[in-house]
């Protein structure tokens, strides 16, 4: 009898480990994901309750954002060239489509953090699109079910994002080290670049997911290790991940075209 229990233990343990190690950010079992139907519905229910307590703060933020948007109306004043340009219009149409969504589940203290949004494929949200909020970038859409969206947060060591120094234009990769939810690291900035604390880090726009120039954060610490050819830069995030409640999903409608073109280079 003891023997059989041992066999069952080994069998189930292997099953669990397969689940753990078969993990891949983009193809994951539908069963275990917070965008699945049951957990999504449950989180939405509890969020309806807890949402009430953050109403005041959310209203303030929405009011701020309204003011910001009004200030950007064409008639408001002459556009300064320093403005972060979110939408690139051309004769052929809009490159970036925006959907607003509410965060119904969020974590910041795990090694791999995810968010769940209350909109899904029915609302036109697609995989591999950017998630931002008024303060800066939040993450990338990973899975979409009809009514919910699971987002891989910037606070997830599996996500790497291309960022650049706004002043000099040098670009590197931004990733989280799995510890403090207020900071991320910017690597691959060469030593000949000029970096000082307080410099703004924005998205580079090279990944075809994020539009160019969305704030990521500001330089907090710069270190130049001896014998290495890159800076070690600690970045203070622009977004307070503990207080996310409304976000925008940005869909680059030309992403497919760009990727297809770039893919042809691989065959050269």
């Amino acid at each position: 009898m003891q023997h059989h229990v041992g066999v069952l233990f080994v069998f189930l343990e292997i099953l669990s480990l397969i689940l753990v190690f078969r993990y891949n950010p983009y193809h994951r079992s539908v069963f275990v994901s917070s965008s699945n139907r049951l957990s999504g519905a449950l989180y939405e229910g509890t969020h309806a309750l807890t949402h009430f307590f953050s109403l005041q703060r959310d209203n303030d933020r929405l009011a701020d954002e309204n003011a910001f948007l009004k200030s950007r109306l064409p008639g408001a004043f002459q556009m300064s060239p320093n403005y972060i340009r979110l939408v690139k219009d051309s004769l052929t149409g809009q490159q970036y489509a925006y959907h607003s969504a509410r965060v119904i589940n969020n974590s910041v203290n795990k090694s791999f953090n995810y968010l769940t949004l209350d909109k899904g494929s029915i609302d036109g949200i697609r995989q591999e699109t950017a998630v931002i909020c008024p303060d800066g970038i939040v993450g990338v859409v990973r899975r979409v079910s009809p009514h919910f969206t699971s987002v891989i947060s910037l606070l997830n060591s599996r996500l790497k994002i291309s960022g650049k120094l706004k002043e000099s234009g040098h670009f590197g990769s931004v990733s989280w080290d799995g510890t403090d939810s207020r900071y991320v690291n910017l690597s691959e900035i060469p030593l000949h670049a000029t970096v000082k604390p307080g410099d703004l880090i924005v998205t580079s726009g090279y990944s075809a997911i994020f539009p160019e120039g969305i704030p990521i954060g500001t330089v907090d610490e710069v270190e130049a290790e001896e014998g290495e050819s890159f800076f070690r830069i600690r970045v203070k995030l622009a977004v307070d991940f503990k207080r996310l409640s409304y976000v925008e999903v940005v869909d680059n409608t030309y992403r497919g075209e760009q990727l297809q073109l770039e893919k042809q280079n691989e065959n050269d």
């Binding site: 229990v5 189930l12 669990s16 689940l19 993990y23 917070s34 989180y43 791999f112």
Partner: peptide
């Protein structure tokens, strides 16, 4: 019984995994 303990623990672990985006970790 041992088998019942294992099945219950496995179900519980998977349940928590489903809500925390940690496939298999809590189950294991």
């Amino acid at each position: 019984p041992g088998w019942l303990l294992l099945i219950s623990a496995f179900a519980m672990g998977l349940g928590v995994d489903a809500f925390s985006n940690t496939p298999g970790m809590h189950a294991a």
